[in-house]
Simulated scan of single mutants.
Amino acid sequence: MLAALDIGLGTTLAGTGSQAQAAVPSTIPPTISNNSGRGDQVYVYNIGTLLSTGQQGWADANGTFHAWPAGGNPPTDAPDASIAGPASGQTMTLQMPKFSGRVYFSYGQKLVFKLTTGGLVQPAVQNPSDPNRNILFNWTEYTLNDSGLWINSTQVDMFSAPYAVGVKAGDGSVKNTGHLEPGGYNGFFSALRGQPGGWANLIQTRSDGTVLRALAPGHDIEAGALPANVLDDYINRVWQKYSTSTLTVTPFGDQPNTKYYGRVSGNVLNFTNTSGAVVTTFQKPDADNIFGCYKLLDGPNDLVRGPISRTCAQASTAATLLPNPTQPDTSSSGFHADVVTNHYARKIHAQMAGGMAYAFAFDDVGNHESLVHDGDPQPAYITLDPCN
């Protein structure tokens, strides 16, 4: 099966911020550098939602937008939106329109995209029958709007072919993020293989032994490759602690007086505001709820429940809820110190340059994400790094 694609601003990419210092042009040029050292043909795709109209579609190399045609049920083949990418050691420049979208890249084979009556669908490689299962590929997420460019290096769904992103500001400075430490690619997979408890099952390989990716743990719980109770011990200890003490959540960095106070009663975590009124409650979550920040720990796009949920999901993933009753924890020094934690996220952060990564949906809580932004963007950069 293929999974429905939602490429709005999403959970991993903020599309709001300070106003642009100058008018943002209708397109900006991203330079794609192929430093992978691989001899395979690279294919590039720029797909997303056109912000001016809300239409889903793709952009060609010149930045011209093409709306997707109507899909079907069963899904029909999408038009070939691929752009021939640069050979190893070469670069190419595209034009990036005002999109909220993704730039995919694949090695050796074109990706398979389908269209349903609800729009585009994307690879769902947690399914062994997905047609993209044996292709080495990855993507970056971005939003380009009148307030500037946000572009990230994401591992929210999987850790795969490495790359970094960057943007040149109007003052000439360049911001980069997403590179691995030397040896970080193989180091990550070696560390994951050595982690007991089913974590090695996250790794997907081709029949010839080629390592393709490690799926994020939420996908592996869904597929049965990782035990659903993998965080139960930690969650039980959190529930016990906050039945007799208070968890304080200050979800907005620019609103230090907006605080919520959590206490556990039975199977429910109740949050009150500074006046003592209950503002939201959460049933005791499991690992799947935490990794996805959904179901019992859903994070709606509001100003109360969503911000509290995202903060708690991040603190649970990083295992800081027990040692620190004041959240979010903006220091990464205590992340993943507990033996029960999201080892996928722990090992990614350990291998990323500067420790910055988007290893789960709300890794941006506390500003630990691999994201660059500028309100006056000039060229952008996507660098395909080697798998070693």
Rank of each mutant, 00 (worst) to 15 (best):
F188M: 05
G197M: 10
G172E: 10
Y234I: 08
P217R: 05
S153K: 09
L226T: 02
V230Y: 02
H179C: 12
N229Y: 14
G183P: 03
L231I: 04
G187T: 05
I221P: 01
I235A: 07
L215E: 11
T177E: 12
G184S: 02
Y185I: 02
L226D: 00
G184M: 02
G187V: 01
Y185R: 04
I151R: 03
A216R: 03
I235M: 06
Q155Y: 00
G184D: 01
E181D: 08
V167E: 15
Y185A: 01
A200M: 11
T205V: 15
V174E: 07
I221R: 00
W150T: 10
S190L: 04
T177Q: 08
T154A: 11
I203Q: 12
V167W: 14
G172Q: 04
V156E: 12
L192C: 13
T177A: 11
L226N: 00
L231H: 08
Q204V: 13
N152V: 09
D232T: 14
S207T: 13
N176C: 07
S153L: 03
D220K: 01
S207D: 08
W199L: 12
A164P: 03
V174N: 06
G224Q: 07
S153P: 02
Y234P: 04
L226F: 01
A228V: 10
L149R: 15
P182E: 00
T154D: 02
G172Y: 09
E222D: 13
F189L: 11
K168V: 15
G184W: 05
N176A: 12
A216E: 09
Q195P: 07
V174I: 14
G194V: 10
G194W: 13
I151L: 12
R193C: 12
G187H: 05
S190K: 10
D171M: 04
D233Q: 15
S173G: 09
I221T: 02
L192A: 08
V156M: 09
N201Y: 13
P227A: 15
G183K: 07
G197A: 05
I151M: 13
Q195D: 07
G170L: 09
G218V: 00
Y185L: 08
D171P: 00
N201K: 10
I203P: 05
E181F: 06
A161F: 11
S153E: 10
M158G: 07
R193S: 15
L202V: 06
A223Y: 00
P162S: 06
Q204F: 05
G166F: 10
G166E: 14
F189E: 08
S173F: 09
S153Q: 13
D157Y: 06
L215S: 07
A225S: 10
P217D: 00
N176F: 14
Y163N: 11
G198L: 09
P182T: 03
G194D: 06
L180A: 00
Q204H: 08
Q195W: 10
Q195T: 15
Q195M: 15
A191I: 03
G198F: 07
W150P: 01
E222I: 02
